[in-house]
Design a binder for these strands. Structure first.
Length: 246
DNA sequence: GCGACAG
DNA sequence: ATCTTGTCGC
């Protein structure tokens, strides 16, 4: 089992990481509509951590965009490459997420990740960072609010409300709170790279026919969590081979 | 200085 | 993110 390490030159402190974001922000492409919802494939990525063993597991799950059936899934194991700092999440998980995406045999199509893209203090969250590094269209679907204000969207599925940032970059709409099911807490959608906000919301809704979270993140979440359990067990007892039940 | 803050 | 039992509801 190969363990992904942070590449040479990976930021080691917060100031350097922020400088990297300021540098790469200019490479984000915002004038492309992106893939059409319901066509081709869409890939969900997510990670699970074992801080005790300094390990992060990333999962990438490719779904048929029409049927939402799983087409392919992969995982990658890495060393945690940065501490958790709000606004610098990408530096913690990107090396391992990239490894998982690169090990796919299928073209990922649109990538859906947990967290934010433009809705970020420097307008360069995980979804944008992943997009710039891979060149793929990426959107961010977060479960919790971050640094912006918003009104509560209507109670029905499909209702939205603007996420408004008011900071050093000015006052602007950076995403949308989107109700994916009647009466449930909204998810927070933002553009990552090469996708429009309208398209990002349309994809999110299409990917959430039954539950609050998109099927992409549900699959990716379940996969990386299971993989982390298996790997953590192996690391603590190398004599044991395959995964054990429970 | 204080509070808030994706995963 | 992760730690964790029961519990309310369809």
């Amino acid at each position: 089992m190969k363990i992904i390490e942070a590449p040479a030159g990976w930021p080691a402190d917060e100031a350097t990481a922020r400088a990297v974001q300021d540098e790469l922000r200019g490479k984000v492409v915002l004038d492309e509509a992106g893939p059409t919802p319901g066509n081709g494939v869409v890939t969900g990525v997510d990670v699970a951590y074992d801080d005790e063993r300094d390990v992060v597991v990333a999962a990438a799950v490719v779904l048929d965009a029409r049927s939402l059936d799983v087409v392919e899934k992969t995982t990658a194991v890495g060393r945690i490459s940065f501490p958790y700092v709000p606004g610098l999440l990408a530096f913690r998980e990107i090396p391992t997420v990239l490894a998982a995406l690169e090990s796919l045999n299928t073209d990922p199509g649109l990538v859906v990740c947990d967290g934010y893209g433009l809705a970020h203090p420097r307008r360069f969250g995980l979804a944008s960072h992943l997009g710039v590094l891979t060149g793929l269209p990426v959107i961010g679907v977060a479960k919790n609010p971050f640094t912006f204000t918003y009104e509560q969207p209507g109670e029905r599925r499909g209702s939205t409300a603007a996420l408004v940032a008011d900071d050093s970059h000015g006052r602007e709409t950076v995403g949308r709170a989107l109700r994916t099911q009647d009466g449930v807490k909204p998810v927070f959608v933002s553009v990552g790279h090469r996708v429009t906000l309208d398209a990002a919301c349309a994809h999110t809704l299409h990917l959430s026919p039954r539950y609050r979270l998109p099927e992409t993140t549900r699959h990716a979440d379940a996969l990386c969590r299971q993989a982390l359990k298996d790997i953590s067990r192996t690391l603590e007892d190398p004599s044991r081979k395959g995964p054990r039940i429970q």
